[in-house]
């Protein structure tokens, strides 16, 4: 998980989605999620995934980094699907739901800096949880980098090698132990610095307003449309089941259009 790429895209990316208000993006994400929850039609869920891919393509987001992250839950969903689904289509539906929901979440995080996402969350969570969320996310970067440095140092001193798996495992767990001690000291230092800067039990993050109200409106309209389609195919499934291919074809067309548009503007 290269979280630095995610953060770079969220902070320095330039797309319409980056300009939209974080609150709107969270609402749109919630609506997309509701569509996934409501839908029991594989075609509708796949159409939703393709629509999200079309948005990612049109907005020139770093798809190469986003797709592996979105595909990661598929491994675990596949185990659950294989273990419990009655047939292949049901299994495909479970995996499609996992990947589509992850794609929605990853799109949100690749276009919104994490303090902005948590600023919205902070309004509904206790102070302790809100602060812990911010500190956790920040600490992931520090620890991931430190752990990479530690394992590199151990490898350079021949502590990790393919021919000695037990010695390698011991060296890696010692590195983890070292990282843990480093983390505890870091936590203490961090608290001291926060107190010096006037921390009184609440980290306040101001919500950034929208830079493109039109994008906000489009996002809400698009995600509402997705939810409406999912509800129609859920409630009136007997009447519309024969037309399940329409949303899928529309999403595919959208994706091709986005690819074409992207290719021409290159």
């Amino acid at each position: 998980m290269d979280i630095a790429v995610l953060d770079r895209s969220a902070v320095s990316g330039r797309s319409h989605l980056h300009d939209a208000s974080p609150r709107t993006k969270l609402l749109a994400f919630a609506l997309v999620l509701a569509s996934i929850v409501v839908s029991s039609n594989l075609f509708i869920v796949v159409a939703l995934a393709l629509a999200l891919l079309a948005v990612i393509t049109a907005e020139r987001l770093p798809a190469r980094q986003m797709l592996p992250l979105a595909a990661y839950p598929a491994i675990f969903a596949a185990v659950f699907a294989i273990a419990s689904a009655p047939d292949a289509l049901a299994a495909a539906l479970i995996i499609a739901k996992a990947v589509t929901a992850a794609l929605g979440a990853v799109t949100l995080m690749f276009t919104t800096p994490y303090p902005q996402v948590f600023a919205v969350a902070q309004r509904v969570t206790p102070a302790l949880v809100g602060d812990a969320l911010l500190m956790t996310y920040r600490a992931i970067f520090i620890l991931a980098e430190k752990f990479a440095d530690l394992t590199r140092a151990v490898r350079l001193r021949a502590g990790i090698s393919g021919t000695h798996p037990i010695r390698s495992a011991q060296a890696t767990t010692r590195a983890l132990g070292g990282l843990l001690l480093y983390s505890v000291d870091l936590a203490q230092r961090e608290y001291d610095v926060l107190v010096l800067r006037g921390y009184s039990g609440r980290l306040k993050v101001a919500e950034r307003p929208s830079r493109s109200p039109r994008t906000d409106q489009s996002l809400i309209a698009g995600s509402l449309a997705a939810l409406a389609v999912a509800i129609v195919w859920r409630v009136y499934w007997a009447s519309v089941i024969n037309y399940s291919w329409i949303p899928l074809a529309a999403a595919l067309l959208g994706l091709f259009a986005a690819l074409l548009f992207r290719g021409r503007n290159r």
């Binding site: 956790t136 620890l143 961090e190």
Partner: peptide
């Protein structure tokens, strides 16, 4: 409350 950074760091360690 003074342990909030520790919660953050340990949670991050679990996530890593």
């Amino acid at each position: 409350r003074r342990k909030v950074p520790l919660v953050g760091i340990v949670s991050a360690l679990v996530l890593v």
